[in-house]
Structures are given as C-alpha cells and as structure tokens.
Simulated assay, not measured.
Amino acid sequence: MNQNDVLSVNLTEGGYSTDSKLLQDISFSIDKGEIVGLIGPNGAGKSTTIKAILGILNHVKGDIHVNEYAYIPERPIFYDGLTLWEHIDFLLSVSEVDEQQFIPKAKKLLETFRLSHVVNHYPENFSKGMQQKGMIVLALLKQPSLYIIDEPFMGLDPTAINKLLEMINREKEHGAGILMSTHVLDTAEKICDRFILISDGKVISHGNLGEIRMDSGLEHGSLFDCFDVLTERDNDDW
C-alpha cells in the first residue's frame, strides 16, 4: 500500500467458508481523491468484495489495507430506539471533532437532504429513501479518508441523487477516495475515474473508460455497452 492509497485489496480467494470460494484473485487499489466504480451483474461478487474489505467475510486469503472509512450500505442500518438526532449525537461522542463545527454541519446536511422535520423521529419508521438519506448524512459527518458506498442511488429521488453526487465530488476534491458499487452505469460513467468490472467472483477488466473500451473492443462504446460485451465474453469462456 503506497502513501497515496486509501484502500489496497489483494485477495487470492474469499467466501463464506473454506468450501465457498466466491472470490478469486481480486486485486485493486484506490488513491486519494478518486472515485472507483465497482461494476458487475447480480451475484458477481461485488457485495462479497465489500464484505471482505469491511472484515465481515468468514474466509479470506490475501491482504487488505484500509484507512478510516465510512460505509453506506444498500440496506440502511440503524439502532432501534434511537432517533435520527440521537444517531448524530452518538457519532459526535465517538468522533474526535470540533462540536462547534460538527453541529452546524449536521443541521446543514439535514436541511440539504430534507430530513430536518424528522430529526427527532425513529429511522426504522422512515421510508427506504429517507433511511438512505439518513445513512448518507451520517457518513458525510464522519469525514473519513475513504467512502465505501453500495448501490447509493436505490430509493433516492432525483433531487437527493443530485445532492449526493455533489457531495461525493466535494469529498473527492477534499482528498477522499470513494469505492462505489452501482448498477446505474450511465451515472457511474459520468462520475467515476476508474472502473473495476467483476464477473463470477473475479476481475474481468479494470481501468478508466478508455481502457475498458480497449478491453471490450468497442472504441466508442458506453460503459453499459462495454459491460455487456465483457460479461457476455466471460460467460462464454465458462
């Protein structure tokens, strides 16, 4: 892991047991100030790769080096019996931050994502979209060097998606690295610096859009078109 990396992954294999090798030869890194898209069909190994990074995968062979991170899961997770503001207050209590800066920032983010009116309500009673926005607010308040985001656009309305994209680009400008797993390929194409394409638990292509196009043989193809060609080719290899 070099000094510019916020994440380095070198896995020879990984799975839920020694008999379940869902990942093979997954290697990539993320630098400060770049957005990397983790792309693949359902069941390709994206979520399993993220679990390996988070340290919650039972069987892992290889090395993973990760800086402080914030994780935004596909399915939001909150503590039962705590209001949204109590979640924010808890984050403040375990973070080494200036309260005089933290509280105004929290209120601004709540306003940005239109959650101010439910700040004293319980997130378990929120809609999926509101829960997702709550997770985004908590992650942004943590201000880590790495964001791990799993399907961030699921359940969000267009306004919230635009706000999230603005925030992601702002964090990138401040030097954070972002690993984003998503099926929304047109958006990924616009905002990601590089891509990691996974199929059947292994990396089938990686690089910027030009390099992905070269691998797919589509000189002017969209990310979606290249993805389609590369995954079909991988299936044919099997």
Rank of each mutant, 00 (worst) to 15 (best):
residue 93 S to D: 15
residue 39 I to L: 13
residue 196 I to E: 10
residue 109 L to P: 11
residue 49 T to R: 08
residue 114 R to Y: 03
residue 13 E to I: 05
residue 112 T to N: 11
residue 154 M to E: 08
residue 111 E to G: 15
residue 93 S to C: 10
residue 108 K to Y: 12
residue 182 T to K: 09
residue 84 L to W: 02
residue 164 L to R: 13
residue 113 F to H: 14
residue 192 C to Q: 09
residue 78 F to G: 04
residue 134 G to K: 08
residue 106 A to I: 14
residue 145 S to K: 04
residue 87 H to W: 01
residue 88 I to V: 15
residue 9 V to N: 05
residue 37 G to D: 04
residue 198 I to T: 00
residue 20 S to G: 00
residue 81 G to L: 08
residue 12 T to H: 11
residue 77 I to C: 14
residue 47 S to M: 10
residue 93 S to Q: 12
residue 220 H to C: 01
residue 163 K to A: 07
residue 61 K to L: 13
residue 103 I to E: 13
residue 174 H to S: 00
residue 19 D to K: 13
residue 85 W to L: 09
residue 97 V to D: 00
residue 146 L to W: 02
residue 217 G to Y: 08
residue 212 I to W: 00
residue 193 D to S: 05
residue 18 T to N: 06
residue 14 G to A: 10
residue 118 V to F: 01
residue 24 Q to C: 07
residue 68 E to G: 10
residue 176 A to Y: 10
residue 134 G to V: 11
residue 124 E to L: 15
residue 64 I to G: 12
residue 136 I to D: 15
residue 164 L to G: 14
residue 78 F to H: 05
residue 9 V to R: 07
residue 229 V to S: 12
residue 163 K to H: 03
residue 39 I to V: 09
residue 67 N to P: 07
residue 210 G to D: 06
residue 147 Y to E: 15
residue 4 N to Q: 02
residue 53 I to K: 01
residue 56 I to R: 11
